[in-house]
Nucleic acid binder design. Structure first.
Lengths: 406, 406
DNA sequence: TTAGTTAGTAAAGGTTACTAACGAACTAAT
DNA sequence: ATTAGTTCGTTAGTAACCTTTACTAACTAA
């Protein structure tokens, strides 16, 4: 069976049984008809595809508001009240939308009945594999509110063992979910292709591991696997309110990033977009990097190196050192910010290291190396999502993939 | 009347008369129903929108092939033969598609009748305003084959005078077109927003000039105005066969670029994507730039500066100087290539300056400053479109906007 | 009490693309 | 030459979808 077959089986109408996961199969089946990505890009549109699109649009609108009537929805999305009623009645049958009762305020005319997404009626499982010492996972509701947490220590486990650790963590989380699970999202380090195959993740010893296929097959749940930094960028977009042209920089043992252009994640020609850790910074050398080159961004900015800088220096020298690391980041980012005319750059990583002089150094450098007239409206800030940024991104990917919502 | 109104009028069903341009208004009207962009992103899909999408898809498929039967189209696009026949019969009525007669080869079954886009039955007008000394324009057929050329000298004209020069050039070209014109594309320097308003073009003295609106209004033709480098990137994508993740660098008096990600042009948060000319390169200073900073990319790479370098040096020193300019370009590009995982970078500009040591210097620098494992499959090359790159890009924008073809 | 407004539903209609079935026109085998 | 099989394009009927039109229900304001 190919990965595609598995995907179709796990997310299509032919799911035979999902009893072990506690998901009502009828609901899962119908809900999947809301799939936003169901119309392959550049493919023909049949009436059912149009319907799916409109379903997703209504769900999206409901998701972003809280409490809209059918008439509100009609005005918002541009369909007629009749059509909206029809769509909503499907949603109500499926349990995806709930009736909040009559709108309280006093206006002329028949009072509206408010509707909302059944935000706590379903669960999503999100995993973060980016820390090679411990895999962390959560169960959230549709709003991304964490209701369960779990983690497994994976100090140094690699290959199939690491895959088994993922399975174990999922088993745990899925068992603890009380509401039906609409999907699983997993942020993995390394290069991940569009099918959710981990092409290469050196830290985990993975090469061409079809993780999405494996998880979907084993747990019979719609699954999304993507690069951790890309997922973080998605998380910041949806739950952190970042703009449509932004970049998220993740600083940890290495330095990675996720790039969003026009509201869409960038994958790149070889699914390696965002991998900026080993780009040489500046024209004045720099320390030797593990990759063989000298002066890579990771040499300046990885958290071990920053920790060391902080430990070795006194207060003032420490601030200067952090500022310099920030400047190096700014030097790398300037061409990217200019080429993409980014509106926002967000940093994620150890707050104590990044949030002070480092961030200022980056901001200052970006200002001095780009044209203020063109790129002056750039916002540079820390993430507000904390350590959950990757798992929340995974949740967003599931929401987008299964409901067309983000 | 707002710009939006003008747009709707010029490209919608309410065009009253287009007699002076030689376009049959009925045809123009019907053809516009093929508009690919007619469904606003994120908006509801009605049956007619689905139809438009499918129309565009069929046209696109025909455009890329040469000579397909209805049955071929059905297989290719995924619609049934019945539906294809229906769509094709519309196209035949509108004159957009022509019957090539029966397929010559001998196979079992009823012989197929081949169809093709009526490639020479319609014209497109493309303008390039990027040279502030002379505006150049062409009339092409749907294949981008130039059938007429014209230019006007505009040495130093600015503001309304420059707009009038555009009008005069268009008047000339439109008068010379023999086939009905499906649209006008204009590549302008400076910042151009999505409505085709030139937000700022210092060389032409333009600020907030609604050029697209003005041209559409005056000539009653669907019009597309965009940044010159962005149009060049579009041209290279379609007629130069560039890949879906690429960047086109234009070297002239200044340095600009167009960025394509996932097959789509990047506009950026302030429509200033691609403006990399005034990003500081390296950490070792550089000559003072007109913008006030030192060591901008434009200081190293603008064609006047390169001309000067070539003039002042002997053979060997010249090569080294050109190579160094190339290296500077490579230093700027490395973070962009890595962040976007670009598959291709294309240079456009004076061939004698760019094609030799400069290109080699850039390639070498990109190799040495990025990770070969990730970005090793990058292609760096000169454009094959020559001086017509911008006007051809303008033609592509019209094709895409009016027929959904590219 | 009446007029006006708004929400939601019902019935009918038009568009779109589908399936099923067929004739036309060919090749290949007998 | 006949027959079988294939492929093309069309016709007829159907299902899905959204719309328009028209209605009832339920409220506010005068």
């Amino acid at each position: 069976m190919t990965i595609e077959d598995a995907q179709r089986r796990s997310s299509g109408a032919t799911v035979d049984t999902v009893a072990e996961t506690g998901v009502d199969s009828t609901v899962a089946q119908q809900r999947n008809t809301a799939l936003a990505g169901a119309v392959p890009a550049g493919a023909r549109v049949r009436p059912e595809h149009a319907r799916r699109h409109n379903r997703a649009l209504v769900l999206q609108t409901l998701y972003r508001a809280n409490g809209l009537s059918r008439a509100d929805l009609a005005r918002e999305v541009g369909l007629t009240r009749v059509t909206i009623s029809d769509l909503v009645s499907d949603f109500l049958d499926e349990g995806l939308v709930i009736d909040l009762g009559i709108r309280p305020d006093a206006r002329p005319g028949k009072p509206a009945t408010l509707l909302d997404i059944n935000r706590t009626g379903f669960s999503i499982v999100g995993l973060d594999l980016s820390n090679s010492a411990v895999f962390r996972g959560v169960v959230t509701d549709l709003d991304g509110v964490v209701v369960e947490r779990a983690e497994v220590s994976v100090g140094g486990t690699r290959g199939q063992e690491a895959v088994d650790a993922v399975f174990a963590l999922l088993e745990d989380l899925i068992g603890r979910a009380t509401a039906p699970i609409i999907g699983v999202g997993i942020g993995s380090p390394g290069i991940v292709d569009l099918d959710g195959t981990v092409v290469s993740a050196p830290n985990l010893g993975w090469t061409e591991v079809p993780l999405q296929h494996l998880v979907a097959e084993r747990f019979k749940l719609p699954t999304q696997v993507a690069n951790d930094a890309n997922m973080a960028a998605q998380g910041e977009r949806s739950f952190g309110g970042a703009s449509t042209d932004m970049m998220l920089i993740r600083v940890g043992r290495g330095v990675g990033s996720g790039v969003v252009v026009g509201g869409n994640l960038v994958y790149g020609s070889g699914f390696a977009a965002g991998e900026i850790g080993h780009v040489v910074v500046g024209t004045d050398g720099g320390e030797k990097c593990a990759c063989g080159k000298s002066g890579c961004l990771e040499v300046w900015l990885s958290s071990p190196r920053l920790e060391q800088v902080v430990a070795e220096h006194g207060d003032e020298a420490r601030e200067a050192a952090l500022r310099e690391a920030g400047e190096r980041l700014g030097i790398s980012l300037a061409p990217i910010v200019a080429a993409l005319n980014l509106g926002e750059v967000v940093l994620a990583g150890p707050h104590n290291l990044l949030a002070g002089p480092l961030l200022e150094g980056t901001a200052e450098t970006l200002r001095s190396r780009t044209m203020a007239e063109l790129h002056g409206n750039l916002t540079l800030r820390m993430t507000t999502l904390g350590r959950d940024i990757v798992v929340l991104g995974a949740v967003v990917m599931v929401l987008t993939g299964q409901l067309g919502v983000s």
